[in-house]
Structures are given as structure tokens and as C-alpha cells.
Amino acid sequence: MKVSAQEADSAYRTKNQFVPYPVVGNAPETGFQFGFGAIYTFFINHDPRETRNSFIYSFNMWTAKQQQQYAVQASVWLPKNIWNFTANGIYTDYPLFFYGVGSDTKQSDEDLITSKRFKILTVAKHKIIKDLYAGVGLWVQNDNFSAADSTGIFNTGDYYGKQGGNSMLIGFGGAFDNRDYENSTTTGSYFSLLEWISLGINNYKFHVFNLDARHFFRFDATKCAGIQFVYQTAQGSATPFYYLPFIGGDQILRGYYVGRYRDQHMLATQAEFRYRPWGKQKDHGWFSLSRLSLAGFAGTGMVFSNGEFNFSNLKPNYGGGFRYMFEPTARMILRFDYGVGSKNPGEKRSTGFYISLNEAF
């Protein structure tokens, strides 16, 4: 039986999707948290064999202590992936814990500070040859920090850039990308180099360098594994503390509080195994078991200042979680992870629970 080209193409046609979801939580620094998120996925070219999916993601949250956070993230792929435009925007009036700078910061020094931040980061990448991209970017940010405890480490410590203010950076770099999917990759490689240079506003004179290398292996239709190596550094005579690389959060070394350790250099490596137990079953819509997957991960990393690299500073992490694939064609997922980090003498073990869009890497 012959199938016409038009019929074959129609099998790959996709529909745009809008997925809202509630946000509810609680934390000591905020009290009760509530809000909503929404994800809109679409294709500039509706044949996913030629063009990757695009998406716009928004996350908005308020707290019982009258704090707020608004975030928007977008990635747009033009036909045949010739251009990719990404943008991240965030406004926060939100508390966070600050522990100082270095690889040996103490839990006892934990200082609650309020961060009022407005940030926009955009990158445009153009395909030069197959799988190879060159790009430029613009990073604009305004920061204001305050701490109620006059005796805490933030007010008493010598951290450059405590006054906050405006900053602007321009970026340039390149990437190799032959992954089968940008979201929830199963096979292929990604290698990115990106340099950001401050324009000297507020006399902030520094540059930030990022290296991100990933490779994925597919064992069969239900199992795959990935490994990532990340290196970041911030250098310059006047580098604000909040631009220093850090570990922690929902992407790099899950299990550590975001920014728990920060310094001039950060390097980390992590591996993850992903398993879709019912991946071979036919998809029947929103409640299909084929859309669920499990993951386990482990890694290690550290931060260090210039000339002070030491393997003894490596900090391990491990954990696992599950994912729900709400858009199978584009492989867009909601991710639920629990990570475990190290236990310093006299402190509780570091742990973290995360709900995020798409995989950590």
C-alpha cells in the first residue's frame, strides 16, 4: 500500500499547545507561596523533521510576606533551524539566603537578604554549516540588595558590588548541536562556548566565560543516558559578587541551595539515566502512561578562586525523580527531582526538591 507524500507529511503535523498550571508551596523565608505558570509550544514550520519546536514559558509567584517573582523564558527556531533566538527575563522582589563566597562557606553564616532584580538576557544564533552555530547576545541587569540583620555576613562582609546597580554585557560565541531533540534529548552532542564582556557601567569591569559540553546515548526506545561537563569563570578587576559562578539549584548539582557555594571558577560534571517504562505503548493523550518517565542522576563539582584548585573541594550529589511529557512531538516535559548533596560537619545534609520545565541538561 502506497502512502502519498501529503499523507506522510500530515503524520508529522503538530498542533500548538497552551498548558497552564498552578504553583503552590511553602518556605521559611517566604511563608506560603502561590501563583501560576504557563507554557505555550509551537512550530514555525509544522514539520518537526525540519524545524525544532519553539516555546514561551512563564512562571509567576507571590508569597504571604508580600514578595513576588515574575519570569519569562522563550526559545524560537526559524524554518530549518537556520536561526535560534532565546530570551530570559525576570523580575524579583524576593528573599534568598546568602552564605558568602568560597568553597567552605558555613551554614551558621546563613544570612537572609532581599534581592530586587530586573534581568533580560537574549542570544541570537545563526547556523553557519550543518550543526554549527555562531551567536551574539545582550545581557542587561539591575540589582538591589538589602539585609535586615546589621550583624550578618552580608552587611559586615567585604563583597564587591553590594550596592547593586545597573550592568550591561555583550556576548559572543558558538555552538555545535546535533541532538535529536533540544528538550529531553536521547542521542547526540551539544558543545557551547560563550563569552560575556561587561561594558563598564557603574565601573563594573569583568568578563564571564561559559563552557557547556553534553553527550547522550540511547540504549533502546525506552532508555537513554547523558553526561554533562560545565565550566564557568568570572574574571576582572571589578566583578560584582552576584556574577560569580555558583553551584546549586535545579540544573547544576541538584541538592544544593542555589548559590550555596560561589567563587571565581565553577566546574561540575553530572550523569543521568532516563527510563520510560511504558515508552513503547501508543500515546492516548494527557493520561497516557507512555508520557511518564523516571530518572536517576549523580555528579560532582566545586567552586574555587584563582590559583586555588583543589580536588578536596569537590562536592558530590545524587538523586532522582520523574517527568511528565505534556507535548510528545516536541518532548516538552515537567520535571520533578529530589537531589541530595554533601553533609558538612555539624550541619544538616544538603537536599533540594525541584519542579522545573524540561530536563536539567
Rank of each mutant, 00 (worst) to 15 (best):
Gln67Phe: 11
Asn53Ala: 12
Tyr40Ile: 05
Pro22Tyr: 04
Ile82Gly: 05
Phe59Arg: 14
Gly89Val: 13
Asn88Leu: 13
Ser54Arg: 09
Pro28Asn: 12
Val19Cys: 06
Thr86Arg: 01
Arg49Cys: 09
Phe32Trp: 14
Arg52Tyr: 10
Gln69Glu: 14
Ile90Gln: 07
Thr51Met: 04
Tyr94Trp: 08
Phe18Ser: 09
Ile56Tyr: 14
Pro48Glu: 00
Ala27Ser: 15
Val19Asn: 06
Gln68Pro: 08
Trp77Glu: 06
Phe85Lys: 04
Phe55Glu: 10
Ala71Glu: 03
Trp83Cys: 12
Phe42Glu: 01
Tyr21Ala: 03
Asn88Ile: 14
Phe32Ser: 04
Phe34Arg: 06
Pro20Ala: 04
Phe59Val: 13
Gly37Ser: 00
Ile39Val: 15
Ile82Cys: 06
Ala71Gly: 04
Gly102Thr: 03
Lys65Ala: 06
Glu29Asn: 15
Gly35Ser: 09
Ile82Ser: 07
Gln68His: 13
His46Thr: 12
Ile56Cys: 09
Gly31Ser: 13
Leu78Lys: 06
Phe34Leu: 09
Glu29Gln: 15
Lys80Thr: 10
Tyr99Ala: 08
Glu29Met: 12
Phe42Gln: 02
Ser54Phe: 11
Ser103Ile: 01
Ala74Asp: 02
Arg49Leu: 13
Thr30Cys: 12
Ser75Ala: 15
Val23Gln: 05
Thr92Glu: 12
Thr63Cys: 09
Ser54Trp: 10
Pro48Met: 01
Asp47Gly: 11
Pro95His: 09
Trp62Met: 15
Arg52Gln: 10
Ala74Cys: 02
Arg52Thr: 02
Tyr91Ser: 01
Phe42Asn: 02
Gln68Val: 07
Gly37Arg: 00
Gln69Lys: 13
Gly100Glu: 01
